[in-house]
Design a protein around this nucleic acid. Sequence first.
RNA 1: GGCCGCGUGGCGCAACUGAAUAGCGCAUCUGAUUACGGCUCAGAAGGUUGCAGGUUUGAAUCCUGCCGCGGUCACCA
Length: 595
Amino acid sequence: MGIQDILEKQVKEAVKVLYGVDVPSVEFQPTRKDFEGDITLVIFPMLRYIKGNPVEIGDTIGTFLVDKVSEVSHFNVVKGFLNLIIHDTYYLNFFKDILGDTDYGHAQATDSGAIMVEYSSPNTNKPLHLGHIRNNLLGYSVSEILKAAGHKVYKTQIINDRGIHICKSMVAWQRFGEGETPQSSGMKGDHLVGKYYVAFDRVHKQQIAEMVAAGTDREKAGKETPILCEAQEMLRKWEAGDAATVALWKQMNGWVYDGFNETYKNLGVDFDSLYYESDTYLLGKDVVADGLEKGVFFKKADGSVWIDLTDEGLDEKIVLRADGTAVYMTQDIGTAIQRVKDHPDISGMVYTVGNEQDYHFKVLFLILKKLGYSWAEKLYHLSYGMVDLPSGKMKSREGTVVDADDLMVEMTRTAQGISEELGKLDGYSETEREELYRIIGLGALKYYILKVDPKKRIMFNPEESVDFQGNTGPFIQYTYARIQSILRKAGEMGDDKGLTGRGDLGLGAKEKELVKKVMVYPGTIRLAAENYSPALVANYVYDLVKEFNSFYQQVSILGEPNTESRRFRVVLSRKVGEIIKSAMALLGIMMPERM
RNA sequence: GGCCGCGUGGCGCAACUGAAUAGCGCAUCUGAUUACGGCUCAGAAGGUUGCAGGUUUGAAUCCUGCCGCGGUCACCA
């Protein structure tokens, strides 16, 4: 039971005994640095139930608490704030309790059902770019946070592997590829296919120009170029199951998947299961038929099926075309239901998709609710803002995208440059160094993106790239590495064995602040999970690290003459290091032993 | 135009979802360290939280109206 729970109970008791009323809730906050105290009871909300002067009420309750609650040492009242000072022994006991808990901060697994998290979900005709990186990092991190909060998680993605856009790459490769493969060209598969997608676009534009010059209307030309007709013909063949077309499609998609997998591996993300649009694009039609019968949907004169959401302040939305074919929404309805069929323990789903689809998901969730699925209440659109460049939006056609693979390499090289200046890597082999540069470079990138609230837009400047000082990944990694350095030395001194006594010594101011930060780690994870927000974890680690650096600067750890005191500081440092590593792992960021 | 999101020192971000004098980093200025890793620490300066009202004992936070930026209003995905 945390100190706040204890106090909440006691404050309610105090109010009942002293004033004869029940207060439904009690509000606490950490005491601000400018005042003495550990935790503060805010009196103001109680004035609703207790008439009187807040200062007097604070005094009365404070006296009661000191008397009744052994953890409370003394108090002071400032305006409507009752600042409570907690005994050092409470913190020391708490710290001893959690010291051996290697899983500290993680909640016990609950059986409240699994959550499926969808993220990444790329097209198979273009390599991944910076926008996907934000998506992947968010999806992966939220998955890890949900796990840490005690949920079972399935990570998945839907791969957009069919449609006219895929056929464009196929046509271009057939026409101009001359049998080029990733092996023959030495190109990553996704980049190779992307190259032909771009080639298609170029030829298409050229043909439009030719047709316009020959007198065709521009708009008409855009829809009827020979190469586009060829792609459309290929799509028809694909849908008809033409063997040669399907074989080519499989081959080229295979290249892309190999390329994607390499990127995912480098980025450090993974998936438990995959859904392919080629398998799911026909799903959902029967559900629509079903919903039509139930009266959730209605049919228009031309035979198309719609849902009327005007009562909800939204519009009418189509769910099935007049010719009976599925639209995007149809598929998403079907896919959601399919996922629950595949994983019957699912109780909720998270969709990591950019905020340009806010409306789509609002409608999707509403439809699933109206169809009566119990899990529809627990669907969440993890919506995030675009990543912009100084030059504006990323546009693949204008070649202004930041390629994911290139960016990771750049970040690694930047980290190398900085590391080499510092030169703390004696005895590291070439491969060890390379791995370290990756850890630092990717750590910088990931932290930079994840520390920002998901719904905000991010401006990414590739030139200035990412800072390595201040509130950054490498700053945290550096602190971690320094702790490890202390622990190595402490090990030689035999001081990392654990606590001996310490009970009588009390806690130094910096030690106490540090323990208090350690204390709120589990609550931070819970909050981050509730809000689907890695940023909360990032901010927490940063706070913890700053507190540690302040402690580190203020007191001597290994130089402390008193054995018990020294050991306590070593063990405290070790625990802080463990938490840094654990929390950063929730962001998908690794910690180096040295750097 | 309708709907959705965002607007916080020069720049980049926080603020436990309504509480104390709005925090932090970068940049600027000043200082600390014979010590465990100086990618550290302490301090200074910098704000009418886009504007105007309203609710409240109390508003960056909630409500209304403007202004600005972005997104979205496809039988595309």
